[in-house]
Computed example of a mutant assay.
Amino acid sequence: MRLFGGSESRGSGTKASARIPRPSSGWTQLQKSLREQEGLRILDIGPTSSTNINFLTALGHSVYMANLVEDAIDPKWAQPDADTPFPVEDFVRQNLDFGDRLFDTVFFWDVADYFPTELRAAVVNRIHEVMQPGGQLLAFFHVKPESGLQRYHLRDDAQVDTQFAAEAEVRNTLTNRQIEQLFNEFTSYKFFLAKDNLREVLVTR
């Protein structure tokens, strides 16, 4: 399990690539909450970003990271044929064991689009279990298939930087209704319009 907190950093082994800024209404709203509070416990699910760690710890928060997409495409989880189901329970047990930690904020980014359908629901259910009531989750969803997993870097303005992180394929694209169903155990959600190939949703536990 690749999970850590504080200001440690681990590289993904990919070559450096350009960072591309994109406006993010979801991040703009979530950032206000993070600046108004201290001592929050934050889970960043995606390719490791030392920028995010430094940004969030400077605000007085603790940061934990889990790169679930690269974990899910590890050869050890490879299915021998299309009829073999993904080993969801084993994956969740090995990669989403956070001990007794509960999180106030989760950056879910666009990772759900890279999971098999059965794994997507199980991961979201597990994240729901380890979030504090009233905690918030920021998620992105592709509106059409794409290739290439992105690393998202937080900024102190109304944008996030995107950067190529690894080879991966978007498995499915979800409608707004399907996204609502994915987060049906949560209290509320708010969609944000975007001008690019992503839609954003800010979800409250």
Rank of each mutant, 00 (worst) to 15 (best):
R22A: 12
R22H: 09
D110H: 05
Y114K: 01
V170E: 04
L56Q: 00
P21M: 03
I20E: 10
R22C: 03
S9L: 14
E118P: 02
L43N: 04
E36L: 05
L3E: 10
Q31K: 12
S24A: 07
A78I: 13
R2D: 11
V203N: 07
I179S: 06
S12N: 13
F183Y: 15
Q37N: 11
M1V: 06
F186V: 03
Q181V: 03
T14I: 08
E38G: 12
P21H: 03
G5W: 02
F98T: 03
L3N: 11
E36T: 00
Q163T: 03
T84I: 10
N184Y: 08
L138F: 14
E180D: 07
R126H: 07
P47N: 09
E180K: 10
S188M: 06
A82R: 07
G99Q: 01
R177S: 13
N52L: 04
K195Q: 13
Q37W: 00
S188H: 11
I45C: 15
V130G: 04
E118Q: 11
F4D: 10
G5I: 00
N172P: 00
I20R: 04
S147M: 14
T173E: 01
E200K: 06
K195S: 14
Y152E: 04
A72Y: 00
R35P: 00
W77D: 02
W27D: 04
P75A: 08
F191N: 10
V69M: 09
S7V: 14
P47G: 05
I73W: 05
T14P: 00
E185F: 08
D83W: 05
